[in-house]
């Protein structure tokens, strides 16, 4: 148990970034995904096609490629060096890298979520909309008061899968040098020339995912008071 304390400290710091990236992605991609879903079901064809192509491209290419693209875009396309962008955003270089990663994650996960939302929305029987309409509800009210909760209920299992995957995907952040949990473990392995940091990192991931699974399972159970 040599250097246990130091290693743990470093891993905790990395874990902080992992959790931050996870939370930011989830908080932004869940609503954005719903907007994307509306876009891909829009009656306005150009928007619908744009969303479909975007979703196809994002789901069809590696997330790592998207992260790299986002990080190079300002410099290569808009001729704004990353340093200059960082000072304009009032962020450190590290924070800017985190920002790039987060942007790529949010867009990527919004696309995955949007497909889940769309599938969920499309399974709601048309009778639900009609029953709402004859009761005088507007389209928005039908969606928010009647359809949405049923969609949530239906998509929770596939959403849970995606959320668990997100936890593991956060390790891709290290491509831009972000010190996430796995990157911190890698540094520790190199620094102390022992393999145990990987084991600790694995335990961190397992505990995090274990808690998430419990939480999502609990929500699912809470919602299973009715059948859809």
């Amino acid at each position: 148990m040599e250097h246990f304390q130091e290693i743990l400290m470093e891993l905790c710091e990395g874990f902080g970034n992992t959790v931050l990236l996870f939370a930011v992605t989830l908080l932004c991609a869940l609503p954005l995904g719903l907007l994307f879903a509306f876009g891909s079901m829009s009656k306005f064809k150009p928007l619908q096609w744009f969303m479909k192509v975007l979703i196809w491209v994002i789901r069809g290419t590696p997330l790592m490629l998207q992260i790299l693209l986002v990080s190079f875009l300002p410099q290569y396309v808009f001729q704004v060096p990353t340093k200059q962008l960082a000072s304009a955003l009032n962020l450190s270089i590290n924070a800017t890298m985190f920002f790039f990663v987060a942007v790529a994650f949010v867009i990527n996960y919004a696309c995955y979520f949007s497909e889940i939302y769309r599938a969920g929305i499309e399974t709601i029987p048309v009778g639900q909309y009609e029953a709402g309409k004859v009761l005088g509800l507007t389209k928005n009210q039908v969606f928010t008061k009647i359809v949405f909760m049923q969609v949530v209920r239906r998509i929770l299992p596939p959403m849970s899968n995606e959320i668990i995957t997100l936890v593991k995907d956060t390790s891709l952040a290290q491509i831009l040098g972000v010190i996430d949990l796995l990157n911190a473990a890698k540094h520790a392995v190199n620094e102390y020339v022992i393999l145990t940091p990987f084991l600790y990192a694995a335990i961190f991931y397992l505990i995090f995912n274990g808690l998430l699974t419990l939480l999502l399972g609990w929500v699912e159970k809470k919602l299973s008071y009715y059948k859809v």
Partner: peptide
């Protein structure tokens, strides 16, 4: 306008 009310063949109750 809700001048009419409607009862459907398969109820269409809101399950939640």
């Amino acid at each position: 306008p809700c001048t009419f009310g409607m009862v459907f063949q398969n109820f269409n109750l809101f399950p939640q």
